[in-house]
Amino acid sequence: MKKSQLAHASLAALGTMAAGVVHAQTNVTLYGVIDGSIEYVNRVGTAPANLATTGTATAPVGKRFDMPRAGGLSASRWGLRGTEDLGQGWSALFNLESGFDWDSGNLTTAPLFNRAAIVGLGNKDHGRLTFGRQYTSMTDALIVFAPLRFAASYEPGVWWLGLNYRQSNMAKYRGKFGGVQVGAHYSFGTASSLQAAGTGQPLGPGEAPGNIKDNSAWGAAVSYEGGGFAVGVGYDQWNPAPAATPGNTGRERKTGVAASYTTGRLKISGGYRYRDSQFSNDATLIRDDFWFAGVNYDVTAALGVQLGYYYSNIKQYRPTPAGVATNPANPQQVSLVLDYSLSKRTDVYLASSYVHNGSLINDGPFTGYLFNYPQAPGQKNMVGVTTGVRHIF
């Protein structure tokens, strides 16, 4: 064979092999959830225009019958994720995820990839290191214990884990070693107008030159699962700073613990979260304890029942740095979900919830009124019922 022929044959063989390797070692997945429901809510008010300084809704609008943009069981979303095998147990990974309002098609919040924008490296034996917008370590450890599986409606998940349960500009490590998972993260700047809701002060941009602590955040968590038993514990700290006076940081600290036990079709779970949030002048914004308990039971292979109870002990609340501290009534909530699977990807559901001394899912300044359940003046109880369909792709 001539040298030129041999060279062409070798190059063709190498090209074929390379193409096969790339095809075998790289994957990209398009995924998402669309969850739509119709809801009835009684005694609902109107959210105030200024969320940062006003904690009281306006006069009640009475009963509401509509399509909630958040969906019933899951927030609607779509995303792309992928990995590339780098050899010797290493891989590159990415994840881009965007939330949207199912009823209108609008983005839930700006920017485009508001839920996740991650790139990183992972090793099957040593864990993974990721960078970008992602969940906090405390969220990773505790979210699996939510009685309603962190349902979009009727579970106080944002009150529990905070508006900053996702953070931008984050470096995070996660590792799994047998039944133990560990994680830690640091955010160089978590600032956003949404996260400013309830803090009484506007936030400056993240990663402020000369003031490295401004709007930074960090946390760590550890969890264990084995023999039907699971437990998780986490810590999260966020240091909000106003734009007008950089270098004057507030502080929000949260510590949480949760556990569950699963036997057959039954799962029992419960947990506790401590929060101490302070303004930059060291005055207490809010100090509260949050407790929850839940029961999940699969009646049949298709029908599941989820029951959750939530109690908030609000010991102190001050809406502004110079405001007077108050001791509001303590909200209590009971939520029930009946979920029937039509297939592995599609289910229909009926969910209901009752709350005393508050609004559904504690919606208010500390959740940015994201769920449109503001407590009207003089209101003590609220009831919500929603039914819908969810499809996972």
Results as ranks from 00 to 15, higher is better:
A217R: 08
A151K: 07
S98K: 03
E97F: 00
V144D: 15
A220G: 00
N123L: 06
I118W: 03
V119M: 11
S192P: 12
S168H: 05
Y186W: 09
G105C: 10
K213H: 03
V180N: 01
G183I: 02
F229L: 07
P205L: 05
M138G: 07
S104T: 09
G228S: 00
L142I: 07
Q167L: 13
L93Q: 12
R149K: 07
K176L: 08
L194G: 11
G89I: 06
V222F: 00
A196W: 07
G204Y: 09
N211P: 03
P147S: 11
A141L: 11
N114L: 00
P205V: 11
D101H: 05
L163K: 07
R133A: 08
T108P: 06
G210C: 09
E97R: 00
L112F: 10
H126E: 10
A92P: 03
Y173H: 13
K172M: 14
P111T: 02
E225H: 08
G105Y: 02
K172P: 00
S187T: 15
A152L: 04
G183V: 01
A116I: 04
H126W: 11
A221M: 09
S187M: 07
G127N: 03
L194H: 06
R149Q: 15
G226L: 01
A116M: 12
D214L: 13
Y154V: 12
S137Y: 10
G99N: 05
T108W: 13
T109C: 02
T136V: 01
N106S: 05
S91G: 10
G227S: 05
R133E: 13
R133L: 15
A197F: 12
I212A: 09
H126R: 12
A152M: 11
N169L: 05
W90S: 07
G105F: 09
E207Y: 02
P202S: 00
E155I: 13
K124N: 14
G210M: 04
